[in-house]
Design a protein around this nucleic acid. Structure first.
Lengths: 232, 232
DNA sequence: CGTTAGTTTGACCTGTATCAAAGCAGGTGG
DNA sequence: CCACCTGCTTTGATACAGGTCAAACTAACG
């Protein structure tokens, strides 16, 4: 879990956290995670892979509300009943047992809350992207968010990371068609803002990217002294 | 407060809730509510008027994340630091004091949580609207949400209500230009889905409206035996 | 009245969707 | 090893939703 990234935790706390992780399981691309997790009320933590929370309309349109990354906590009791929780890649996730007891500790409780706050703030960002940013700005904005979140769990450095999903999926997050995602990506490269494919993004000009996306007003750069909990 | 709409509360609870409301104040259209409320950490309750939570970009574009209605609770500690909380109309709001003690009660605690859950679910709906619905669908969807929420606090019946804001503001919620809001509204009337202006909406065909908007998957009709707390 | 904020209308432009087809892997079975 | 899927990316052509600009209209208000 990446609670460590949301507050200074003692080694004890970190150890206890690790002990909460129980009964890991795998599920394949496209599978309904909620269903796969229906034998326990959760919460759950993602150990590997990406999970998408969204809704699909009868005519095939799909909108992903959020993307959940390794380290993120899934709580089936949260979110609308009809929200679909889907494995965007092969996913490994596990139960978090006895967390409620742990969370009586001050530090952990704060980190837990900070994590939820961050989740909610990301939702607000999603609304901004979809409501008022162009495809270009929108994509830049999402890239920055993902970089930040991936770095938090040690899956990105300041410039490089990998998006293990198709352009279709990216489109479902961004509210764009596949074709538009493709063209936007090309534009980002043409303008030397990034290079590489989805699976090996390299940020060439973070500064300008942030400016284009109107990013950073609320996003402080990731503090470098934080030490994320290793996952597996 | 409209906590009463989120769970059966005893008369005692309702009375206690009323006693929490302290130091009401007014603020004018366009004023930053957060600033106006900075003398106490909150939470606050809206007694009258609409509040918009959103962000404004340097080039003038504005996106409202949510709209807060009478009865809604504002908590300045929630939400990104740079979120703007603006009075969309003249607003009267008040402090909620000593709420933490009250919330030890089971029923109140549940209602409180249910309220927050509903808020979050509304955010998800907002993402769906902006990401995948057309202007027409989007507006229909928002109308249904607002009707439901207004009815919850006794400010709408099943068919009629009033939106005390300009088309500009509506556009800032819907991620649309003023012109498009105007034309969409006309289309809704032309197709006999609604009639009237912003300040006196009449829903003519809720059924079809819901179908167009893909609304109702997660939205049960408002239970009629709920009794909302009167506000002022 | 004149001023101001909001609504409505028309003309035009552009961003993004849609449709269709062509490349391009990576993986499977013959 | 090749032929063949199948899923994904890329490209081009075209359509349309919604944005932008500008101006007229309306209503409230001092």
């Amino acid at each position: 879990m990446h609670l460590g990234a949301f507050g200074r935790l003692s080694d004890d706390d970190l150890a206890n956290l690790s002990n909460c992780i129980a009964r890991p399981r795998r599920c394949a691309v496209g599978v309904d995670v909620r269903h796969e997790a229906s034998d326990s009320p959760g919460p759950w933590v993602i150990l590997m892979g990406w999970v998408g929370e969204g809704r699909e309309l009868s005519d095939g349109r799909r909108q992903l509300f959020t993307v959940r990354l390794p380290g993120d906590v899934l709580d089936p009791s949260r979110g609308p009943a009809d929200m679909e929780v889907t494995a965007l890649t092969t996913v490994i996730f596990a139960e978090l047992r006895g967390l409620d007891i742990l969370l009586t500790g001050q530090a952990l409780r704060n980190a837990w809350r900070a994590m939820h706050r961050a989740e909610r703030d990301a939702l607000y960002d999603q609304v901004l992207r979809l409501g008022r940013l162009s495809a270009f700005e929108r994509t830049a904005h999402l890239l920055l968010e993902l970089q930040e979140r991936l770095q938090r769990v040690g899956m990105a450095n300041a410039l490089e990371f990998s998006l293990p999903v198709s352009q279709k999926v990216l489109g479902d997050v961004l509210g764009l068609s596949i074709v538009q995602v493709n063209r936007t990506w090309q534009q980002l490269r043409r303008e030397e803002l990034i290079s590489g494919q989805l699976r090996d993004v390299l940020i060439l000009d973070r500064e300008r990217l942030a400016q284009i996306a109107n990013y950073g007003l609320s996003h402080k750069p990731v503090a470098q002294e934080l030490r994320p909990t290793r996952l597996s």
